[in-house]
């Protein structure tokens, strides 16, 4: 019932939009009625253009996430397990971290030109620092008692890493991945809008510039839906995989 109430407002707004569009009869270069947008969306899906663009955007996002988060986790483990290393790198990390990822765009453009590598490198840069910091703090927050257990059992450092550290940080690692996945999608669309002529962002920009508002809103809606679905699916997986995580965190 509560969930239904949440849908009332958007549906009401949609109906209002449609009714006012019918009443005024918009034939403009800037706005389209919901029914026209739905038709444009259906056309985009059936001729495959939206799906092709989606595959391009998601490929770049996944590639960037894999590279950036992979390096971030690796560096996070190193920094977390070897605190002196982390202390030595602190200023370097703090100086590089606030650089907005899109600022890297011109450098990536110069090095790679248009296409996947440029987009992936920017996404990787954007994902790297948050994952690094979250992984490092996850390792720091492992209960000292677990490390004592490792010592008592005389585990080697490799055994300790895989049998104690990795399972202990897994829930927080997943949270880091979920956040990074959101960042990856945002950055991929942003790069496509700002420069890279491929994927959903570019199609959105093109629809706007060639004054096809129905197409533009259809793609905008689709991007929102992808973002929402991604977030929802990852949240759900997280709750399924680590149902007690929040409880455990309360204890610490």
């Amino acid at each position: 019932m509560k969930a239904l109430k949440g849908f009332a407002l958007p549906i009401l707004l949609l109906i209002l939009w449609q009714v006012s569009a019918l009443a005024v009869g918009i034939h403009s270069d800037t706005l389209a009625a919901p029914v026209e947008i739905a038709a444009a969306f259906a056309a985009g899906i059936s001729n495959g253009s939206i799906l092709r663009a989606t595959v391009m955007t998601l490929t770049a996002a996944a590639g960037g996430l894999a590279v950036g988060a992979g390096l971030g986790v690796a560096a996070g483990f190193l920094f977390g397990l070897l605190p002196p290393l982390s202390r030595l790198a602190r200023i370097t990390v703090e100086v590089l971290r606030p650089v907005p990822a899109v600022a890297i765009l011109p450098i990536a453009l110069l090095v790679f030109g248009f296409g996947y590598p440029m987009e992936i490198s920017i996404i990787a840069f954007a994902c790297f620092f948050p994952v690094l910091l979250l992984t490092e703090s996850a390792i720091r927050q492992i209960s000292p008692r677990l490390m004592e257990v490792a010592r008592v059992m005389r585990l080697t450092s490799v055994q300790r890493t895989f049998k104690i550290v990795f399972p202990a940080v897994l829930p927080r690692l997943f949270v880091a991945m979920r956040l990074a996945a959101g960042v990856a999608l945002i950055v991929s669309v942003t790069v496509e809008i700002a420069a890279n002529p491929q994927g959903l962002g570019y199609n959105l920009m093109l629809a706007g510039q060639s004054l096809r508002p129905a197409d533009m809103f259809a793609i905008l809606f689709w991007i929102g839906l992808i973002g929402w679905t991604l977030n929802w699916a990852l949240m759900r997986t997280e709750r399924k995989l680590f149902p007690f995580h929040s409880l455990r965190r309360g204890e610490e």
Partner: peptide
């Protein structure tokens, strides 16, 4: 109950995606 879910619906939209709309 009535408004917050709509905001949650819009939030995952990458902000830069509204740039083309704003340009129009």
């Amino acid at each position: 109950t009535w408004i917050a879910p709509t905001l949650e619906l819009i939030r995952p939209l990458p902000a830069s995606a509204i740039a083309p709309v704003a340009i129009v």
